Amino acid sequence: MTSSNHMAIQRLTRLLPASLLAGLLGGGLWIFLGTYVNAWCWDDIICFNHSIFDSISELQYIVLTILVLFLAGMLAVALQQGEVGSQAQAVFAGGVSGCMVFLINMVHSEILDLFSHGSTDPVGHLIFKASIIIIYTLPLLFLTLMVAVLAVLGALVLFSSQEKVNTPEENARASRLVLSSIILLILTFVALPPLVAHLMIGAGMIEVSSSVALIGTFISLEHTAPDTIVLTALEVPATSALADPPYSVYINGFHGVDVSNTSAAAASGLAITVEPANGLQAVEGSKATWKGAVFEDNSTPVSVTVIAHGTDGSDIELVVLDHNVQD
């Protein structure tokens, strides 16, 4: 091996730690955006089961994936602190970070798969997964190459911006500008699509089926005193899915006695007070209290049924979680 080749290998070796760290950060960000942030953005409206929301969320994920891979490649160059002296080295740093991003994502997926299936034989599970990887080696290599290429492009973008400056201060300033721009783009694509979707729903531009959204609504019931029950809205859909009033409360079944609010309770002929007067509201964490002797007769305990009313005219009986915490 000639001395020039030996020096080239040494230079590339020095790039490895920062490139691997950049890939680790990029992989973590990719997982975070694809799981927690995606759920935070879309969970309250994806249940409307409208194809446009699926399309927008998938497009958002694709764009964010590309931007995160660009960022991983840029970090691979930025973290070198001037060690990257040529485009070839930038390509190497970006490629390593891209491969690391893909590896992190693969490991995360396999860990989730292992725990989600509750496997009692992790060794057998790993052997099975290894066989799958061997079978699909070529497709996996192709995916790895695509990820690495995107990271390399990001590395080259940052390296080219650094090449245009002459001093270390200008170099650092250019790096911060490029990195800030890509981070701003990521934040924009995280917030903008769900915001637009919410605005479109609020403006009535999209017709959605509220009956699907109502299924995920949960109400808790607590006996806070022998003659008192409290209903709490634990999970509620978007307000655009619920009619006004959003809920009806019945004693002894759907066709029983309506005690949804003060007026309904008075019309029932039962001595029941409702607080607040308009009953349970469609706000997560909201509470309403019903008090009356009818709840006190333990020999023939009453059942409480809550019906949610959708804007499309649908009525769904909700799951009522009875905590039964009498004083």
Rank of each mutant, 00 (worst) to 15 (best):
T273G: 05
G292Q: 13
E275R: 01
G256E: 02
A277P: 02
F254W: 12
V302A: 10
E296T: 11
A288W: 07
D297M: 08
A288N: 08
A267S: 13
G279H: 01
V294D: 07
V294A: 11
T273W: 00
A293R: 13
N298M: 13
G269W: 02
G279A: 02
V294P: 08
I251E: 02
Q281K: 11
N261Q: 07
A293D: 15
F254T: 14
S303I: 00
T300K: 15
E284V: 07
N298R: 15
A293P: 04
S260W: 08
K291F: 06
E284K: 10
V274Y: 01
I272L: 02
G285E: 04
A265Y: 13
T273C: 01
S268Y: 07
A266L: 09
F295H: 10
S286F: 06
A282G: 10
G292E: 11
E284S: 05
S299E: 15
T262V: 11
T273E: 09
A282R: 03
D297F: 05
N278H: 08
G285R: 02
K287Y: 06
A277R: 06
F295G: 08
V302I: 13
A293M: 12
V274S: 01
N278M: 05
W290D: 09
A266P: 01
S303T: 14
E275Y: 03
H255M: 11
A288Y: 09
T262G: 07
G292S: 11
A265G: 06
P301S: 12
A271M: 06
A267T: 05
S260G: 11
V257Q: 07
A266Y: 10
H255S: 15
N278E: 08
E284W: 00
A277E: 12
A266R: 08
S286L: 02
S299C: 03
I251H: 04
G269P: 05
Q281F: 02
P301H: 04
P301I: 05
N252L: 01
V259A: 10
G256H: 03
E284H: 05
V259M: 10
A264Q: 13
T289F: 04
K287E: 14
A288H: 05
I272V: 13
G279R: 00
S268G: 04
T273I: 01
A266W: 03
P276A: 00
N278T: 09
D297T: 06
S260F: 10
S268I: 08
T289P: 04
G253M: 01
V274G: 04
S303D: 07
S268D: 09
F254P: 00
A264R: 14
T273A: 09
N278V: 04
T300Y: 13
A271T: 12
V274N: 01
I251Y: 04
I251C: 05
S299R: 14
Q281W: 03
D297V: 10
T273H: 01
A266F: 06
V294T: 13
T262L: 14
A293G: 07
S263Q: 12
G285D: 01
K291T: 15
A293S: 15
G285I: 03
E296L: 08
